[in-house]
Structures are given as C-alpha cells and as structure tokens.
Design a protein around this nucleic acid. Sequence first.
DNA 1: TTAATAAGTTAACACCGTTAGCAAATATAA
DNA 2: TTATATTTGCTAACGGTGTTAACTTATTAA
Lengths: 200, 200
Amino acid sequence: MGIVERKMRHKEEIRTGILEAAWHMVITDGWQSLSIRKIADAIEYSIPVIYNHFENKEAILLEFSKEGYQKLALTLNEAKKTVVSPTAQLEVMAVAYWDFAFENKEYYQLMFGLGIPACEMVNQVAEIKEMTSTLVSTIQEALVQTGNREADYFLKYHAYWSILHGLVSIQMIENSGKTDAFKKMILKDAINGFCKSLVL
Amino acid sequence: MGIVERKMRHKEEIRTGILEAAWHMVITDGWQSLSIRKIADAIEYSIPVIYNHFENKEAILLEFSKEGYQKLALTLNEAKKTVVSPTAQLEVMAVAYWDFAFENKEYYQLMFGLGIPACEMVNQVAEIKEMTSTLVSTIQEALVQTGNREADYFLKYHAYWSILHGLVSIQMIENSGKTDAFKKMILKDAINGFCKSLVL
DNA sequence: TTAATAAGTTAACACCGTTAGCAAATATAA
DNA sequence: TTATATTTGCTAACGGTGTTAACTTATTAA
C-alpha cells in the first residue's frame, strides 16, 4: 500500500512546482523580482507551504545556483572531450564557458551576483570612461614601445581589464584560506603573462 | 543679501547629509541594507525630502558607483606616474587596481554588483568543486604536456578561471556595440596569451 | 496685508519575507 | 470503530520596504 509513497510523491510535486514557478519568474522578469508571495500564488498554495520545502527565499536561489554550477561543469566536461591536447582543451573549454554564460544569463548572474540595478546602468556612467581611458592609453603605449603594431589595442585593453576584474571578483567570492601574499602572486603571474603576450 | 545663497547652501547640506548617512549605513551594514526610511531617520527629515534630491534609491547607489569609478581612475593615474615604462605601468596599475578593490570593498561591490546573498554562500556550495576540478585537472595536464614543472597549477587555474569570468562579466555589464564575433576574438586572444604563458 | 510659492509633513498604497496560531484532514493506537 | 496524535495547510498578523498624493506651514513677492 503505497500510501507513504503517494504522500512523498505529492510533496515532491509541490517542491518541483515551487522551483518551476520560481524559475519561470526568474527567466521572465529577472531574479530580482522573485517573490515568495508570487510563487505561492502561482502554485495555488498559501505562503507558509513554501517554508515547508525551503528554509527561506535565499535557499531557493541557492538551489538554482547549484544547478547552474552543475550545468556548467557538465558543459565544460563535454567540451573537454572533443579534443585531446590539453592546451586545445583549455581553448574549447573557454569557448564553452563563454557560451554557457551568455546562453544561460540567468544562471550565470545568479552564480556570480551580476545583474544588480547599479550594475545595469554602467553604460550611462561617464565616470567609467575616465577610468578606461587610462587603461587604453597605457596599453597603446605598451604596444608602441614593444613594437607590436599587429595587436589590437582595444582587444588587449579588454583582456587586461577582464583579467583584473576576474581575479578580484573570484577572489572576493571565493574567500579561500590563501594568504594575501599568495593571492597577489596569482595577480602578478597573470599580469606577467599578459605583458608577455603584448611583446610578440 | 545672500538669501538665495543661504537656501542653496541649505539644500546642498541636506543632499550631502543624505549621502553621508547613506554611506555610513553602507560601510557598517553593507549596501543591501540601505533604506530610504533609515536615511530619513538619520538626517532627521521626513521621507519625501529625500525624493527632492534623488529620483529614487537607485540614484543614490549610482552616485556612489560614480564616486567609485572616479576614485579608481585617480588611483590608477597615480600608480601610473610612479614608473615610466608602459609595461611596468601595467604592472603597478594592476596592483593598484587590486588594492583599491580590497581596500574599498563597498565601492567595488557596488560598481560590479558583487556581494549579493547568493554570491556569498558560494563557499558552501559543493557543486563548485565539481566544476573547478575539471579546470584544475586540465591545467595540470597542460603543464605536464608542455614540460613546465615550474609553474604552480593552482596559480594558473585561478588565472584561467579569472580571465574567463572577468571577460564574461565585463562583457555582460558593458553591453558595448561590438559584434559577437569581435567579443569572441577578445576571448580567443586572451586564452591564447594564457596558453603561451603556460609553455615557458 | 494678501496672494503665491517653496519646504516639509502626514498618511497612505502596494508591496515584501517571515512566522505564530489555528482548523481540518489524515493516520495511528486502543 | 472510536479516540488520540500527527501531519498539512490556512488565515492573519508583524515588521519591514520604496514611493507618492494631499495637506500644512513657512517664506517670499506684490
């Protein structure tokens, strides 16, 4: 007599119902507008029912974040399989990573906290140009000095800034037990590699 | 008779009062907990007064974001002055950028939308390790293949991931008019440079 | 002194996450 | 089968949030 099974199945149905409703809201209106109340409305249950399945709103978001990391891991593994040489693997994995991010913006933004209001109006902020112009000019000077007239300065500027921002934000969210000195070694090494890529 | 001047001064006082109160709240409790009501309470004016100076809450955050970019621009410019060689400048600017980010976490998080709840619990997410292990192993294989036993794989893995994440997030928030093909060229070029740095 | 303008207030609207307390349906034990 | 216990779900509230309409009180100009 699968009574207990039926109950568990029912409970699971509600759980997936919550996640499906939540996800639908996330992809239509962005995860900023996700609300417990609207989920309750969508699944046609009262609000406290949701708290029987998830401790709080954050737990629901974390669920999607985990899903995102799993999907990304899968994507990277599949990309890796397509070639044998490790450096070639690093290349196809990079493209796969990139494609994943833009084909699953909602996941990626959730995983790394992008897509915040203050972050969306970055385009209209003139103050950014003041900063980037310093970067651009230095890159240009470096290219001139190293005699590399082949390289696209705009391309290199983006790479430079991205390396910096990437290192900082990964380090900020990761909070690993590494020392500051070690963290800075990562930075120095990466910049060193970048500067070498300017020379050729 | 500087009556109009006095009034303007008074108005300006309120405006800076709002910003000071807001900033105090940001650095003490994080910018997530910034609230119009609490600002009003702090400056001892009623709530609608704030809306005479800022269109909405977002506008206040944007103000700080702008400030952050200005401060960063200043920091980078000053760092640049300390050395003459462009590549050396790129190095000191990188360190300056890094230091700015960690000495002004509130600014940096505001500027790039980090510090979100879902992003803070990244450490406790086992699913991340599943992904990073793929990256780590490939890096290790690449180092073995290129015969580079000097390089620290952990260091290189961080650099690799950071380049990817940095490129993606800068691209996501920047939303420049560049074509997808051009954006991907930036990616390819950066990864190429990284792979070269593995060889030596 | 009176009319017009500016400054600042109260009070509400429409949301939000979260939880205490209660009712009804179900399952277990006598 | 009846009585007790437990799960399940509900209503209603608490304490927040951003934002705005409507009103009152100063201040200025005529």
